[in-house]
């Protein structure tokens, strides 16, 4: 019998190699061979302008993101590869391009956070099947002990629990503005640290 059957193992191996482990320049030809058109316009990172330094703490490395768009109090930041993060008054509300993305979330406003009010939080993730997953948290807010934050800042710690587990977000404020934070992104990306330059 005859059919078109590329050995699956090879395909998977090629995808793993091309998607992971090689740099982006190395990826392009491999993706082309496998039919990757690369056809998705992505706004580029501005060459200069305000930005933030992001650390994905699970692996302990850093990359810069710059401001792409400001819509009221929501700022969309973009990295060199086009991945985006949306922060409202410094609080992460969405990502695009970080694996299982945080597509949207209900987060307290900055004023609510500063006031220390208990609140509910819902995160909406896109899983590998392109289906939306919702995770609901109950959160409390308390003053922190300063932790690893910069001197002369006020430390606020948000603890959220869900049936799946809990997360702890830290915010350091100066002059009513978040200047540094460590915030939960997703099961895949872990925590992200943000430092305003």
């Amino acid at each position: 019998m005859t059919m078109r059957l590329a050995p699956l193992g090879l395909v998977v191996a090629a995808a793993l190699l091309s998607g992971c482990g090689l740099g982006q320049r190395a990826l392009a030809p491999a993706a082309g061979m496998l039919g990757g058109s690369g056809q998705a316009s992505t706004p580029a990172m501005p060459k200069s302008g305000p930005g933030t330094e992001v650390t994905l703490s699970f692996r302990g490395f850093k990359f810069p993101m710059r401001e792409l768009e400001r819509d009221g109090n929501v700022v969309t930041y973009v990295a060199a590869d086009g991945a985006q993060m949306e922060l409202r008054d410094g609080i992460l509300i969405a990502t695009r391009g970080f694996g299982t993305d945080l597509m949207s979330s209900s987060q307290p406003g900055l004023a609510e956070l500063v006031r220390g009010a208990a609140h509910k939080r819902s995160d909406f993730y896109l899983d590998g099947t392109d289906t939306m997953l919702r995770r609901d948290f109950d959160c409390t807010v308390a003053a922190g002990d300063g932790g690893e934050g910069p001197a002369g800042t006020r430390h606020i710690r948000q603890k959220c629990s869900s049936p799946d587990g809990y997360i702890t977000n830290d915010y350091w404020l100066r002059g009513g503005r978040i200047v540094q934070s460590s915030q939960w992104v997703s099961d895949y990306a872990g925590y992200a640290g943000f430092v305003a330059p």
């Binding site: 998977v12 995808a15 793993l16 998607g19 992971c20 998705a40 316009s41 992505t42 706004p43 792409l68 768009e69 819509d71 969309t76 973009v78 590869d81 086009g82 991945a83 985006q84 695009r96 391009g97 970080f98 694996g99 299982t100 993305d101 896109l126 899983d127 590998g128 099947t129 895949y188």
Partner: peptide, 16 residues
Amino acid sequence: PRRSPTGGLTYGGPRP
């Protein structure tokens, strides 16, 4: 199918 080998969509976001 829930766990793609690349962890999900890794290309950039849309235009704002």
